[in-house]
Design a protein around this nucleic acid. Structure first.
Lengths: 172, 172
DNA sequence: CACAGTTATTTCACTAGTGAAATGAGAGTG
DNA sequence: CACTCTCATTTCACTAGTGAAATAACTGTG
């Protein structure tokens, strides 16, 4: 029983013919992570849009919901992997839609605290649950063995990557 | 020796406190894939920019290099995970920069064949090699065990995902 | 307490990507 | 061979995200 090749296997085989001297083995991990992320997004974002948020807004609202509420824009910024400008813009839009509020910080007037409104909380709780549902859907063809293999491996990768140089991304 | 938690572990623990009834286990895979992709991009794109291409342009040129040369825009479009409009725009820009050429198709004048120029070929060969180098760099802290675990697991995931419903993405 | 330095956030001008409509060409049918 | 259907690609108007400059506030230090 020969398994059908996945796109990365195919790509590596093609490169092998053109540049046999190159070691393309890193694509097994890197190529697949990037590809899988793209495909997963494509599949999962439909559900979010249906709830009225795109992936970035969803991530931001989730971060807000998970963390002890009044969070500074700067912290949101480091939790998400985006530019400061993007975070500012998203906060503004979500505030206009009444999903979150900015409360000026007493002690440091450069900053402000951002918190979910009641409406925002309700929306994200619903969207998060539906998103989990959708995730179960896409992962269902994957065996438990494979799942834990991926989970463990990527956890290790993330720890090694986020330790080095990247913006301080300690979950708290 | 307790391992430091990775960001997804942290997130799950936080959700657990807020919504103990939800099964967030899918985040172990989905959350990590998305997160890892974001971090990997951040780390690797610097090298590409240094070669004068962004990730999308790089992917497009790679696809062109790997496949038997005269490729239709439509095929490029399905190889990459993007909208038709995006592909059109990228082809135009890369053509203006002299990295690829559009040759009208004899048999079907709706379409055209896209092929690398000599300059494009040189650029992508250099960029691809340097990108591999950079990938080796980011993966170096990861043990071989973990690598193959991730690779095998994600290959399985990709096969299961790209089979269903997604645009026809057979590597050839 | 002025003032140089640093930090948090926002604004700005610009680029990349999107969905939907438009264009232009093949294909099937009476 | 007109005419409708479908298909490949492009154009258009718009949204999201970016890096760099601007703004505004805090923090020593002399």
């Amino acid at each position: 029983m020969t398994r059908s090749p996945d796109p990365i296997e195919t790509a590596r085989a093609q490169w092998q013919r053109i540049h046999p001297e190159l070691d393309t083995s890193t694509l097994d991990v890197v190529g697949r992570v990037l590809r899988a992320a793209a495909v997963l997004r494509q599949r999962l974002d439909a559900t979010l849009l249906d709830e009225g948020v795109n992936r970035s807004e969803f991530d931001l609202l989730c971060a807000l919901r998970r963390n002890a509420e009044p969070v500074t824009p700067g912290r949101l910024n480091s939790l998400m992997l985006a530019s400061g400008a993007a975070t500012t813009k998203r906060i503004q839009q979500l505030a206009e839609r009444g999903l979150l509020e900015r409360v000026p910080d007493e002690h440091d007037r450069r900053s402000a605290r951002v918190g979910l409104t009641e409406q925002g909380r309700r929306l994200i709780d619903r969207a998060f649950a539906r998103n989990l549902e959708a995730e179960r859907g896409v992962l269902s063809p994957l065996g438990n063995r494979q799942r834990t293999a991926i989970a463990r491996g990527l956890a290790e990768l993330l720890r090694s990557l986020e330790g080095t140089s990247g913006s301080a991304l300690t979950g708290r």
